[in-house]
């Protein structure tokens, strides 16, 4: 039995099946213009996350001096394309550095959301009965929890920190995923190809991994990308409220610092760029998720069907 389940994961399966699906969906994405634009933007931000610090002209926390004086709140110039902040740090460099924590937030938060959500949703949907009931009641309870106050409480319990703020997001936001994925699974598990597999004696694990998961994958991609967006957005909110580590220069922290300095309106070069980066990134994840779901959800055969 155990051996059987393990064989699911054997090389051949991973190589040819998973790889094929990933390659297939990448191809799908690149065929659709809108999806490709969103996807490229996200890849660009990821790239910033990975290499931003290396590209930055100055260390993010270095206070710059001109003629022995701290270069406070300097407007954009050639040397400092986005100016400096109130303690003389180069904003462009901070923006590049800030891509990394922001991306980590997104990916970590998004992964937590989708993995908890999918585990709960698929288990509830596929196993059904009492398990389903219990899991869904828990989901309902989580639904009732107001996000920001809860985050503040939890963060104060776990201590203020960067990772904590992400974990809090992950622990709450899976609820929507769980519900929708459960209903997807409920539909899929009654489809004939699943029943045929059961009739052939396939174990539950095999059916879930080989038939159910691949068929809810497009929706999972949508939720993962929405999860990334929400995590970034809420982490920025938490940063703004001051319940995350101020020493890690995520874009949210930058906006907060700008606000705290009281220079929000004068030093637009300080508050605006991180704000816009957050907005664009979140928007890109949402739009990418939507358009991917659209193209993966239906084939191009629709026109042919209509011809009948």
């Amino acid at each position: 039995m155990v051996k059987n389940n393990l064989s699911l994961m054997d090389n051949r399966f991973a190589n040819n099946y998973v790889v094929r699906n990933v390659v297939g969906s990448l191809r799908l994405m690149l065929e659709d213009k809108a999806t490709m634009v969103y996807f490229s933007y996200l890849v660009f931000v990821l790239f910033l996350g990975a290499f931003g610090p290396m590209l930055a002209p100055y260390p993010y926390d270095e206070t710059l001096y001109v003629n022995g004086e701290i270069l406070r709140s300097a407007p954009p110039s050639l040397a400092h394309p986005l100016g400096t902040n109130n303690i003389g740090q180069d904003i462009f460099s901070r923006l590049l550095y800030g891509a990394r924590p922001t991306m980590i937030t997104g990916l970590l938060g998004g992964s937590m959301i989708i993995s908890i959500g999918m585990t709960v949703g698929v288990t509830a949907g596929y196993v059904g009965g009492r398990v389903d009931n219990t899991l869904m009641r828990i989901t309902d309870v989580v639904y009732g929890v107001p996000l920001i106050p809860f985050a503040i409480v939890l963060v104060s319990l776990f201590g203020i920190g960067f990772v904590q703020s992400i974990v809090v997001i992950g622990l709450l936001l899976w609820r929507g995923n769980a519900r929708v994925l459960r209903s997807q699974v409920l539909q899929i598990r009654e489809r004939p190809f699943i029943l045929a597999s059961k009739a052939a004696g396939a174990s539950r694990t095999r059916i879930v991994f080989k038939h159910v998961l691949p068929n809810i994958a497009p929706m999972a991609v949508l939720f993962f990308s929405l999860g990334i967006g929400f995590s970034i957005l809420i982490q920025a909110t938490l940063a703004f409220l001051g319940v995350t580590s101020p020493f890690i220069p995520s874009w949210g922290v930058m906006v907060r610092s700008a606000y705290n300095s009281g220079l929000m309106s004068q030093a637009w070069w300080w508050s605006l760029p991180p704000g816009l980066m957050i907005a664009f990134t979140v928007l890109a994840t949402f739009m990418f998720g939507r358009s991917y779901e659209n193209i993966a959800g239906q084939g191009n055969e629709e026109a042919f069907v209509q011809a009948g």
């Binding site: 699906n21 004939p192 190809f193 045929a196 009739a199 080989k210 038939h211 691949p214 068929n215």
Partner: peptide, 15 residues
């Protein structure tokens, strides 16, 4: 073993 009615839904579309 079993054979179903709808040929378009009897096989896993991903396989």
């Amino acid at each position: 073993q079993i054979i179903f009615q709808d040929p378009f839904d009897s096989l896993d579309p991903k396989l």
